[in-house]
Design a protein around this nucleic acid. Structure first.
Length: 587
RNA sequence: GGGGUCGUAGUUCAGUUGGCUAGAACGCCGGCCUGUCACGCCGGAGGCCGCGGGUUCGAGUCCCGUCGACCCCGCCA
């Protein structure tokens, strides 16, 4: 039976009491964490967000009876006196473990049904059950920590930007659809039949306009929406730290974001060394087969094409002669692999799409999968790939980017399988000089790799029409442990260049006007050079929390199937609502 | 859109080749216990084996469909 709180005021949280408080009268309010009923004495652990405190009920029959009726997760208030625990009963696992509260009054403020899973521990529970009872899961230590960490990170971000002259400015959630890019979430307009707002995929155009508006330095911790399929690191709605600066070069952006990352990592007690390493996109692809290389471990890919240009191995020789490459990397400790282990590796590679995987085992003489290769060739390959005595060199041949990308995937698989990823380590990296454009075979046109407002590198600009694939952009990604946690660019601030780029993208002047007319017009009213970046809060916090899914750092996430299992969204709506919005169900 | 893993007490799981009267641990309920802190001890309740079909003398187990969770590919300017 629930009792009123009455005139009780909380004097301490459940994480507050210390030896200094002995003798103090205290009121604690919280949930029943655990009960240990020993017959003549009952210990109750009371929990709130700040911690757990042990309270003791004894000697008072009415209190003892009341305590008997308590169950896990009931909400209680206790009033009593703080007393020191005897030396042999101090609990060093609790921050409050030197003291306990001797209860004089007990109020059951609310009862609780038996929860579907244990709250007091992070015992394993299926994600389905956890998501349905998210409010209970959020009480457990793991999510309490994660959500608290997220709060500390976003607060650190706000403090940082405020201290550095940035204004937090809100941009519309009901925005205009820009079909380029991800699928938009559409919101039907009641007032304008047949017309729609779109939820922002990012506030890109608005923040650029804010630069035109002379806001100079902007940031926003902002929700973005993309109606695409989910992943462990992707939700329909996610949160970005959106940043834009006037008069910025890439270095200006790095110079702001690097100390920001230092502040963020401080929240988990980690230092970040600045400047953060930088690597051009082309190198990332060649050496790691990825535009977001995980640099917590080695296994860098080496090009050994030269070794095979004239070697007695027709397959590789012909590939190299045809403009292809031979690339590979050394697997640390791979020299001790048994034949079946190597076969498993080769099978793995084939499954991932490599035509074949050649291997060389160092030794005197080296042993190779391919017969007829002379020792000198093998030694040269081993040396070129920097393979050590106990390594195993694996190589593949084919087109440069494709081969590296597949080797890059193999690299990740092997690193994971061989435990080569150091626990508790963080590797930050700027990937720079992304290509401006990429060609899509399906419709035979060029698309922006980042977005159509990205500025080309000045020195590549004259190839925009003649060799668009070779034009690099003033675009950069921030990579943490092989995960893309941010991306940005210097923008085009010249209306003529912007129009030229739209033409390159096959967007007619007419089409550009319909889609971005207001923005193109704005560009003509004195746009400062500007640029910025957007960082993924969910991914950053997940990595800092050691979580592999961003669902663990979002209070109310959706499932991979885009459902909110707790609230039951999405759901059908009344016919009346549809009518007001001028919508008709299909079929 | 495609591929993979999974679905059995409240929870996490076990359940050989089809033979089950479906088990364990934790949780839950009752009792005992005056220094526990994952308290301990004794006892008890609890199952549409996700759902719908099929094969079979017989299905938790095999087959088909479906729903749901997770992972991956496509997709994510």
């Amino acid at each position: 039976m629930a009792e009123p709180l009455g005139d009780w005021t909380r004097t301490h949280t459940c994480g507050a009491l210390r030896a200094d408080d002995v003798g103090v009268e205290s009121v604690l309010l919280g949930w029943v964490h655990r009960i240990r009923d020993l017959g003549g004495v009952t210990f109750i652990d009371i929990r709130d967000r700040e911690g757990v405190t042990q309270v003791v009920v004894r000697e008072n029959e009415a209190l003892m009876n009341a305590a008997k009726r308590l169950r896990s997760e009931h909400v209680v208030g206790v009033k009593g006196v703080v007393q020191r625990r005897s030396d042999d009963t101090v609990n060093t696992k609790l921050a409050t473990g030197e003291v306990e509260l001797l209860v004089r009054e007990l109020r059951t403020l609310n009862e609780a049904r038996t929860p579907p899973f244990q709250i007091a521990e992070d015992s394993p529970v299926s994600e389905e059950v956890r998501l349905k009872y998210r409010y209970l899961d959020l009480r457990r230590p793991r999510l309490q920590y994660n959500i608290g960490l997220r709060h500390r990170v976003t607060m650190a971000v706000r403090r940082f930007f405020d201290a550095n002259g940035f204004w937090e400015i809100e941009t519309p959630i009901l925005a205009k659809s820009t079909p380029e890019g991800a699928r938009d979430f559409l919101v039907p307009s009641r007032i304008h039949p047949g017309e729609f707002y779109a939820l922002p995929q990012s506030p890109q155009i608005f923040k650029q306009i804010l630069m035109i508006s002379g806001m100079d330095r902007y940031f926003q911790i902002v929700r973005c929406f993309r109606d695409e399929d989910q992943r462990a690191d992707r939700q329909l709605e996610f949160t970005q730290i959106d940043v834009e600066m006037s008069f910025a070069r890439p270095d200006t952006v790095y110079g702001v974001i690097e100390p920001l990352m230092q502040q963020i990592f401080k929240e988990i007690g980690r230092d970040v060394t600045v400047p953060i390493r930088r690597m051009p996109y082309a190198e990332a692809i060649a050496r790691y087969g990825s535009d977001k290389p995980d640099l917590r471990f080695g296994l860098a890919i080496a090009d050994v094409s030269d070794v095979f240009r004239d070697a007695d191995y027709r397959v590789f020789k012909e590939i190299v002669a045809g403009g292809g490459v031979v690339r590979g990397f050394a697997v640390p400790g791979g020299n001790r692999y048994t034949g079946s282990q190597i076969k498993a590796l080769v099978d793995q590679a084939k499954q991932m799409g490599l035509a074949g995987l050649m291997w060389v085992r160092p030794g005197e003489p080296p042993v190779s999968a391919v017969k007829g290769l002379n020792e000198a060739t093998l030694q040269r390959a081993l040396a070129q790939a920097d393979a050590r005595r106990d390594d195993l060199l694996v190589m593949a041949a084919g087109a440069a980017d494709g081969t590296s990308k597949l080797l890059g995937q193999l690299r990740l698989v092997i690193a994971k399988k061989e435990n080569l990823v150091p626990a508790d380590s963080y590797a930050l990296l700027w990937v720079t000089e992304f290509p401006l454009l990429e060609y899509h075979e399906e419709d035979g046109r060029w698309y922006s790799m980042h977005h159509p407002f990205t500025s080309p590198l000045d020195e590549d600009l004259d190839r925009l029409e003649s060799d668009p694939g070779s034009v690099r952009a003033k675009a950069y990604d921030l990579v943490l442990n092989g995960s893309e946690i941010g991306g940005g660019s210097i923008r085009i601030h010249d209306a003529r260049l912007q129009a030229r780029l739209f033409r390159r993208l096959g967007i007619s002047d007419e089409e550009a006007r319909v889609r971005f007319g207001f923005f193109l017009e704005a560009l003509e009213y004195g746009t400062p050079p500007h640029g910025g970046i957007a960082l993924g809060v969910d991914r950053i916090v997940a990595t800092l929390a050691g979580e592999s899914s961003i669902r663990e750092v979002i209070a109310f996430p959706k499932t991979a199937n885009a459902l909110d299992l707790m609230a039951g969204a999405p759901s059908p709506v009344d016919a009346r609502q549809l009518r007001e919005l001028h919508l008709k169900p299909q079929g």
